[in-house]
């Protein structure tokens, strides 16, 4: 446990400021000190007005998503010792900044198909087996709605109408095991211009996801489902053009 002092450069912005600024703090650090602990130290010891979101402290709530030296990270499980040199902390990208490191999650939630129910019942009750077509228990329900995938997405950076990886992963999960939900409506939603076909398959979202949801693979699965459905459609209704669902691809 060697004590050290680390440099943090933190994005600061309050309403009415002309432009964001970078504020430097020297923060005492131990071997296991996390970025969140360092930010909390700044808040408690030097500047109580530093705005940051946090709740669970163990990568389960998704509130403390930030960019650390340009990479999407949960502050609560990112150690200062894993970062070389100065630790630069910015809010996640592709969502409006409310203040400092806080983004407006309303703009994240608004991307999801409606309704956006809570779909966690049980991971695997011993007496039940997974639904047909599901090999394991890697589920959308692992998503902690942190927004890191959206922040990392190169398409979302240039197109704010794109619903983004988390919402598409959610739709795919609900289509995979709909449990009474409206599968057709979700497929239609995913087939929109701003939906599954807008993804460029950069897989940055899967790279950024701290919860192993693998949104990119789910978007690809969604496209396979949509393609298959269209082929079925063509067979069932031969005089109907394949583009009837309005896909742009």
């Amino acid at each position: 446990m060697s004590d050290a002092v680390r440099t943090l450069r933190v994005h600061r912005f309050k309403r009415g400021d002309d432009a964001p600024r970078v504020e430097e703090h020297l923060v005492p650090a131990h071997e296991g000190t996390t970025v969140l602990e360092a930010l909390r130290w700044i808040q408690l010891q030097e500047d109580p007005t530093l705005g940051l979101r946090h709740s669970c402290f163990h990568a389960s709530c998704g509130t403390c998503g930030v960019r650390v030296n340009g990479r999407e990270r949960l502050a609560c499980v990112t150690r200062l010792s894993d970062v070389e040199g100065a630790v630069i902390v910015d809010p996640i990208a592709n969502l409006p900044v409310l203040h400092d490191l806080v983004v407006d999650m309303a703009a994240f939630v608004a991307r999801f198909p409606q309704p956006h129910p809570i779909v966690r019942e049980s991971e695997f009750l011993p007496e039940s087996s997974p639904a047909d077509g599901i090999d394991d228990h890697e589920r959308y329900e692992d998503c902690i709605e942190c927004g890191l995938c959206l922040s990392a997405c190169p398409v979302a950076a240039t197109d704010d109408t794109y619903v983004g990886p988390a919402a598409l992963a959610y739709a795919q999960r609900m289509i995979e095991e709909s449990r009474g939900g409206d599968r057709e409506a979700l497929l239609h939603w995913a087939d929109q211009d701003a939906g599954a076909w807008r993804c460029h398959a950069a897989f940055e979202c899967t790279e950024a996801c701290p919860s192993d949801v693998r949104p990119a693979q789910r978007i690809m699965a969604l496209r396979r489902e949509l393609r298959g459905r269209r082929t079925d459609h063509d067979r069932a209704v031969p005089d109907r053009p394949a583009t009837v669902t309005g896909a742009s691809a």
Binding site: L52, R53, S55, C56, C61, T63
Partner: peptide
């Protein structure tokens, strides 16, 4: 003062 549930509520073991 912070995010909702940021004090004790959000930190419990669930």
């Amino acid at each position: 003062r912070g995010e909702f549930t940021s004090g004790t509520t959000g930190r419990h073991h669930g």
